[in-house]
């Protein structure tokens, strides 16, 4: 294999040794490992990792803030919702009160109107009754006078007698009372 290998081995006599065990390559590997890994560690510790850490921190702060803000808005909207519902209930209550009052007023008005009308009607009824009674009384008086005249005429013609008007009137009222 050494003959076909055009690359320069570290040492010709060591070319047959298993490469990881060629100790003469160790100083070079260790030096370059120390340099490269040291630089890498420095870059990570001083630049890359603080930067990523700050990115993640800023983001988690921002998310926390946003969640807080969202909670605040949620609270506000809950409060607005509650206020709205309270207003709605109150308005509904008021509406009921107003309606009740309107109903009561309408009823009271109707009651007074009906009372007045009834009173007027009663008055008219009473007046009519009184008229009837007066008419009846007048009629009854006329009946008495007619009876007296009729009786006087009858008696005069039948008995050809002399009967006074006073006697007839007395008899008629007696008969009327007896009847």
């Amino acid at each position: 294999m050494a003959s076909t290998n055009t690359e320069v081995g570290i040492d010709d006599h060591s070319a047959d040794v298993f490469p990881p065990f060629q100790t003469e390559t160790y100083p070079s590997q260790l030096l370059w490992l120390a340099l490269t890994f040291g630089l890498f560690y420095y870059l990570m510790a001083k630049v890359a990792l603080p930067r990523i850490s700050s990115i993640l921190e800023v983001r988690s702060d921002r998310i926390e803030q946003d969640i807080e803000e969202a909670n605040r808005l949620q609270r506000e909207s809950d409060e607005a919702q509650a206020a709205y519902e309270y207003d709605l209930a109150e308005a509904r209550n008021n509406a009921q009160v107003i309606a009740q009052r309107a109903r009561d007023e309408a009823k009271a008005e109707a009651d007074t109107k009906r009372g007045a009308e009834e009173a007027r009607l009663n008055e008219m009824l009473e007046k009519a009754d009184a008229d009837i009674a007066a008419t009846k009384a007048a009629a009854m008086e006329d009946v008495g006078a007619i009876a007296e005249e009729t009786t006087q005429a009858l008696v005069n013609s039948l008995l050809d007698g002399k009967i006074t008007k006073a006697q007839v009137s007395k008899a008629v009222s007696k008969a009327g009372a007896g009847a």
Partner: peptide, 27 residues
């Protein structure tokens, strides 16, 4: 001591350079 820059050292440099560049540039 033989501190020659070898293919091993080259890939150490390549590894460090690409990894560090990636992490630093992407952020």
């Amino acid at each position: 001591f033989d501190f020659s820059f070898t293919n091993s050292a080259l890939f150490m440099v390549v590894t460090v350079a690409t990894t560090a560049a990636f992490l630093i540039l992407t952020t």
